[in-house]
Design a protein around this nucleic acid. Sequence first.
RNA 1: UGCCCGAUGGUGUAAUUGGCAACACGUCUGACUCUGGAUCAGAAGAGUUUAGGUUCGAGACCUAAUCGGGCAACCA
Length: 567
Amino acid sequence: MTQNIEESLPEEKRSLNFIESIIEEDLQTNKNDSRVHTRFPPEPNGYLHIGHAKSICLNFGMAEKYQGKCNLRFDDTNPEKEETEYVDSIMEDVQWLGFQWDKEPYYASDYFDQLYEWACLLIKKGLAYVDDQSQEIISQQRGTPTRPGIESPFRSRSIDENLDLFERMKNGEFPNGSHVLRAKGDITSPNMHMRDPVMYRILHAEHHRTGDTWKIYPMYDYAHGQSDYLEGITHSLCTLEFEVHRPLYDWFLDQIIETSYRPRQIEFARLNLSYTVMSKRKLLELVKNNIVNGWDDPRMPTIAGLRRRGYTPASIRAFADRIGVAKRDNVIDVGLLEFSVREDLNKITNRVMAVLEPVKLIITNYPVGKTEMVELENNPEDPQSGTRMVPFGREIFIERDDFMVDPPNKYFRLAPGKEVRLKGAYVIKCENFDVDENGVVQTIYCSYDEETKSGTGTKQPKVKGTLHWVEASQAIEAEVRLYDRLFMDEDPAGHKEQDPLEFLNPESLKILKNCKLEPALATAQQGDKFQFQRIGYFCVDKDSVKDSLVFNRTVSLKDNWAKLSAK
RNA sequence: UGCCCGAUGGUGUAAUUGGCAACACGUCUGACUCUGGAUCAGAAGAGUUUAGGUUCGAGACCUAAUCGGGCAACCA
């Protein structure tokens, strides 16, 4: 767990977000005995994405900051949609992000008995009734946002009849859809959610935890606040679309609470990312249509996808920190996410040599058959990381991009007659090159100066460029997958007339087959992260097998040259 | 044409509760560099949606308008 920032910097007054302000006010007034207890309440019906990560960081973060607790609670009140598979992936993702929930995970389904009892209590208080009407009729009677509803003819049933009917619903005597339990709200309320909301529906379905014990299941509105109350939650943080549900959240609580303790629902704006879709439905579409290769495709904004892409938990937490929390709609630039990974990977990742699109380079005056070892720093940002020895020889590979027959003005790399430094080795000068019938460069011929060897200090001519390289005879081959953003439009889901799929980036995945890597990489393990010198950050994909490595590009290095040459 | 919420540089978030707008990303300079990365130094960019009002003083408070978002699952 991360250190409490306020503690380590007691004098520095950090500004508070609106949720922190509320919490600190509650702390000052000793509300709920000055406890802070939050919860992250996913429905186990899909994979978590970066938007959930914001919520996770917020909920667990508030608990950490104020020495409180945070529960993980599965909101499993709809047996038709929920599966154990999702429970497992959600737990994995939360822990991977670096958070640990209080005690064991909780489930709304753990409260089904209590919820049922409270429903009976509401009936006895004359505050709930069984409605025999169809879904369509009930919906019609509810009115519209601009027109009030009308009361159900079953609204005035006797308490005994309601109790009897509700019990028989529970016992499975009725088919799906034949009855519901409704709260007696105000059918004319300007807030649709107060117009006699459904508390229970009949569902003859197999629940992932309670099996076929229950034939009736509580609705979100009825279950959520009560679950918060049962767990001692103090601050129930959720997204803005639940704002209009808050009066109902409070209303249910009013009916059952007999203590001074009371949870409070606070809403914040959900995360939107540019060039990304975020809804479960649209993400599912990408998976179903095989536009991506599963939920953990490195182009997906899912936690699993980001993990496979090479994102670190720390980078996602830093991102969540930077974007802040407020109530206004927002669209965060994906660039900020990318900045956050680069920042972290730059600190922790070892530099290695990898040539993605190789072209052969022969140093004509280097002895035939000779190889030597040169010493390279593992990570200049981390003095503890040490150095390693890398083979160098007469024939090497360099990046095709790093040579131009007819270079523009500010090209710092290799060209006929030009000199460059080979990283960690010698300064070479391009003497000649071969092209095939299409004019594609086949081999580059250079000369080297033995006295320019790195680290010897004997002769250090000023050269503008330094290239990465891999010695040819000992190079290992690998597949490298270059990932880019999935959509070309800033807001792919924001067009009324057009489907997001119309904005797919045809180059979101580019597979390079015969990349040349320095031999030390042969032992790289799944998940290992590196900086490919001068190119970007890469990690070993799960598709890797021994002697056939696959690397994913997490993110490129910031490329000023690309910007320059685009001008 | 109802109710609820929101509106601060390109983006996001602040402004210690009324005292002439700060931070981060991005952008642009320059320095340094055996990664055109990183790092370092600096700059540009908003007068806070609009109109009234309260006040000596408003981004903060009040009223209205405008714009944006949400609400009519037996989903969460």
